[in-house]
């Protein structure tokens, strides 16, 4: 859109040229991503607050007759997801050394771990005695884990798109790898949310 730079201005001003490309003008995208995550965290805060209000206001919680949640799969899932954050960070360290294949390796593993998490969640849903409408607790369980699972799915897609773009060696470099950083911070965010969710829903 800035292609229209004035002929005249070439002699006079560097103002437009400075701001024109992505080069030379500061990159605010990471700031934008962080703002987005602040907003997104408020959605979870809303869900968590609702859950906590139910928990404290209802005479019996979980409502009578709610089957115990199986813990084995979610614990494995927690371990997988939390460690995937560390795995992913290796990828960023690699690209800071300009090591694109390292980035691809670590990000590939992270995506696989994310997929394992989703499969585990699917397994849990499939074998659970709870149905979406069994009672209020069950509905909360599915709404919270489901909304989080949606975030994990988006995260996996983000990682896959980083992998796709890094096919060409030039796409990411030590100096320019916003996509890598954005995917990573998002993934850490989803990770932290999971830990809170796990404590709230499974342990409390």
């Amino acid at each position: 859109m800035q292609s229209s730079a004035l002929d005249e201005s070439k002699v006079t001003l560097n103002y437009h040229h400075e701001a024109a490309g992505h080069h030379g003008h500061p990159d605010h995208r990471m700031f934008g991503v962080i703002l987005f995550l602040i907003g997104d965290s408020m959605t979870f805060l809303g869900f968590f607050a609702a859950f906590l209000i139910y928990r404290t206001m209802m005479p019996v919680w979980p409502p009578e007759g709610t089957p115990e949640l199986e813990l084995l799969v979610p614990i494995i899932n927690t371990i997988v997801l939390v460690s995937s954050s560390f795995v992913m960070h290796q990828g960023q360290t690699a690209i800071k050394r300009n090591d694109v294949s390292g980035l691809r390796l670590w990000f590939g593993i992270t995506a696989a771990m994310g997929a394992v998490f989703l499969l585990g969640q699917g397994y849990e849903y499939f074998h659970s005695e709870l149905g979406l409408t069994t009672n209020l607790f069950a509905s909360c369980f599915y709404a919270l884990t489901g909304f989080h699972g949606l975030h994990v799915t988006v995260g996996v897609l983000l990682i896959l798109s980083v992998l796709w773009r890094s096919r060409s060696k030039e796409h990411y470099s030590s100096g320019s790898h916003f996509g890598v950083e954005a995917a990573e911070i998002y993934w850490h965010f989803v990770d932290v949310i999971w830990v809170i969710l796990f404590i709230l829903v499974y342990l409390l």
């Binding site: 907003g39 609702a50 509905s139 709404a143």
Partner: peptide
């Protein structure tokens, strides 16, 4: 800070409306 909380409420309301939950 505010709009995402409304979104959360409306998502739950939508579940109640369509999926028969009773948040």
């Amino acid at each position: 800070l505010g709009t995402p909380v409304l979104a959360a409420a409306l998502i739950l309301l939508s579940f109640d409306l369509i999926a028969g939950t009773s948040f």
